[in-house]
Each structure stands twice: as C-alpha cells, then as structure tokens.
Design a protein around this nucleic acid. Sequence first.
DNA 1: CGAAAGCAAGAGCACCGCTCTCCAATTTTT
DNA 2: AAAAATTGGAGAGCGGTGCTCTTGCTTTCG
Lengths: 251, 251
Amino acid sequence: MEITAAIKEEAARQLAAQGSAGLSLRAVARELGMASSALYRYYPSRDDLLTALIIDAYDAVGAAVEEALAAVDGSRPAAEPVDRWVAVCRAVRDWAIAHPYEYALIYGSPVPGYAAPQDTVVPASRVPLALVSVVRDAHTAGLLGEPAGRPLAGPVRADAGRLAAELAPELPIRVIAALVAAWAQVFGIVSFELFGQFNQVVEARGEFFEQAAVALAAQVGLRTDGAAQDGATAAGDSEGASGADGILREK
Amino acid sequence: MEITAAIKEEAARQLAAQGSAGLSLRAVARELGMASSALYRYYPSRDDLLTALIIDAYDAVGAAVEEALAAVDGSRPAAEPVDRWVAVCRAVRDWAIAHPYEYALIYGSPVPGYAAPQDTVVPASRVPLALVSVVRDAHTAGLLGEPAGRPLAGPVRADAGRLAAELAPELPIRVIAALVAAWAQVFGIVSFELFGQFNQVVEARGEFFEQAAVALAAQVGLRTDGAAQDGATAAGDSEGASGADGILREK
DNA sequence: CGAAAGCAAGAGCACCGCTCTCCAATTTTT
DNA sequence: AAAAATTGGAGAGCGGTGCTCTTGCTTTCG
C-alpha cells in the first residue's frame, strides 16, 4: 500500500513545481517508471489524486499553524492572546509563501472538475479551529474584550449561534461572527499577496500583513494591553521568499 | 476587425459555462465554424485569449462598481459615506455571484501559464479606485474619522505614503493603509463565499457580507453617524443567486 | 494443482494547444 | 491592367493529455 504514497509524493512534487494544471497523470507514471494506465488502479481519476493532495495541503497548513501556536506558547513569558493570534496568522502566510501552489490549490479557485468531498472538511477546519482556540483561551483568561461592529442581524446571529454551539458555547455570539469574518479576511490578504494583486501596491508585505493581523485581532476583541504593541519585532523576518513581486506570476 | 470580438464573445460564453479550464480554442473555433488554426491569427495563444477575457472581467466588475456608486449617489437624500462604501462592496459581491467563473479568473489562482501583462493593471484598479474615491469624498466632506489600528511600521508607512502621493495626497497615510487592507479583506470574504469555504459555516451570506462591509468601513474611518445603522434594510435582497451552497463546486 | 484474484502493460479513443505548409482571395504596387 | 504582396483561412500533423478496455503475468487462496 505504499505505491499510493509514492504516487502522491511524485504528484506533490509536480504540483509544487508547476501548479495544479501542470500535474499530469502520465508524467507521474513516467517518473515512477510505470504505465499510465496502471496508475488508475490507485487513483480512479486525476481529480481523486488532486483531492488527496488537497487534503494533504489542508493538513500541512493546519499542522504549521498548530506548530506555530505551540511554539509561541512555549515562549517566556506566556504569550498574550494577540501574539498567539498573530502567530497563527503568520504561520498561515509563511506556509502559503513556502507552498504557493498548494495554497492556490486549496484557497484559490476550485479546479475545473474539482470535487470537495466530505473528507476535506475536517482537515480544512484545522486553521479556523486554531483561531477559535486562541480566542476561547483569551476568553477563559478574561482577556477578551468587546468585538468591534454593530449588533448582529438576525440571520447572521443564527449562523453564529449555531457555530458557537458546536465550537465554543462560552464565547459571545458576536465574537464568533467577528471571528469568521477575520478568518476570511486573513486569507484575503494572503491571497492578494500570493496572487499578485499587491504587486505594485504593497511592497513591505510582511509588515503589512502583521499590521492587518493585529488589527483583526482587535476586531474580534483580543485586547492588546500589557506590553505595548511590539509586533514590529518579528515582522520583517518572514521576508525573503517574497523578494520578487508576485509568487505565482512568473511568466 | 470584428472577428476578434466574436471569438472573445464565444470564449466568454464557454468561460461562463465551464470555467477557465474548460475553455478550448478548438471548441471556440468549432462553434464559430472555422478551423482551429485560423484562430491563431487573432489570438497568438490560448493565454492571450484568456488575458483578453481577464481584462474584460476587470472592466466588467469595475463598471458594475462605478454604476452602483452612481446609483447610490442618485438616491435621496445624499448617501452617507458608509452607504457608498457598502454599495461598492455589495456591487463587487453581486457581480462575483453573477459571474463566478469570471471572478475566479481574475481573483482566484492565476491560471497555469497565466500572464499578468501591464494591460491588466488599469482595468484592475477600477475597483480599488472606487473605494479610494468613497473615502476621499468622505474626507473632503469632513466625515472621515480616525482609522482603527496602531501607528504604522516604517516600511508600511512608506508604501502607504507612496500610494497616497499618487492616489489621494490629502488623505492621512494611515487611512490609505487601512484602505488597502480593507480592499483585500472584502475580496477575502467574497472569495471564501464563492470558493466554498463558507459552505457549512455561513448560510446568511448576504447579511454576513453586509455586516463585514460595514465593519470594514468603520475600520478605514468612515463614521456611521447620522441615521443609525440601517444597513440591514438592503441586506437581504441580494440573495437568491446563492441559494445553493457553493457556487463553483457543483460536482 | 488448479482456480481466482490482483496488478501491470499496451493499444487505442477523443480531445487539447500549437505549428507548418499550402491555397485562395484580396489588396497594393508597378 | 498586370503583377506582386499581403491577408485570412484550411488542412495535416506533432506531441501531449485523461481515460478505457483488453491482454497477460503473477501471486494468492482453496
């Protein structure tokens, strides 16, 4: 049962090298020294292989986020909620920059024949769950203030209430709503950076992202008290990979 | 010289029907009753055709936004800054829902062989320019408060200053920075909705988006004074197209 | 030992982007 | 008006793709 792993590994290599459109079953088979038809015994179609890669990508970014959270929690003194939040956000961005095609695969436009089976939902929820845990921990520590924004409209309140019930019943519903919005917004910034929308607009992308992440933390109610904001300290060190402008637009 | 238009039109039809990956030069030629090779006289490659479609898509969403802005400005009484901001945001979302594949083409992952030539930058700037104009008008009317967030880190300040110089010298630099962030965040929410990330998370997507747009307006400093927030009035009417969950994920 | 199941290979289908050569019509130039 | 040059299109063909179907080998099981 390790052939499937070898296939996936080679496919991941091609994905990382040429993007999802450049992934060819025949090329994978060629590289593995087998007939292309033999490959269909392990993955019934190209989309199924892609789905496996999608799941792996979700798991990878989820693991990166959880690892970053564990790292910041191991620091001295104990990390503040805002720092934990920013650590999660930064982990997402760093992973995206390091794996642009994998990122595009899961957070870009769905592939042509796509397929978002149920298997993807659990891995896909690791990042949002990390964000929830940061906010929940802040809440239990009494470090959660009022989220920004007006009272929720009815239907939004219903959605947020449902989410709160299954994720964090102790959190205020408005926090949940703000959290979902912040979640989407974090990826909005990362996507804009990776997909080239910031090309002649934002150059200091690491610092810009940091700034936005801090603002989003405040948006969900994480107070930035205690040590004054020194978010700039760790801002610049995630550069280097984004030296050229635009990651995916090479041509 | 109208053959290029016919080609583009048919290509746009295929794009809207099957997405960018489903766009085939041969199919376009077939549909137009000509040899596929003849098509290369007008578009040297598939990517060039795609680029033309990208420019059209940018122009379309830009026009939709400007039209929405003109519409809200024609209302009585004169629209408040927040309402103008939300109108722009809503126009983006409505256009995206109406043209999911075009949206994916320009705001999703860049296509495999892509090509982001300079021709795209002007059309692509129409939406952000509309956002800038809303904020600038609010500023000249004295309706712009302090943007949220901390003081800008040096490099971000430089970026924002450069943008301010060429876009709106009278606006505070921090507003520019907040504006860029809000711009990316608006598209983050739209992309998450269209690309299926909200699938079992947010159901009341119109209201949710409205809420987030209002919050982002506040984030850039647009005060929601005067008539108390009645943003919910126009919230629910942009639904209907998003009845099914997920637009691009049919399979 | 023989049957059955699993696995790999090959050929082939229909499609794709793209290039090349060729031809006819048209336009321009002489 | 005749000749030359440009243009727009057609066809064949190359190498590539995903996918299917049939064939054959090998391993396992009864």
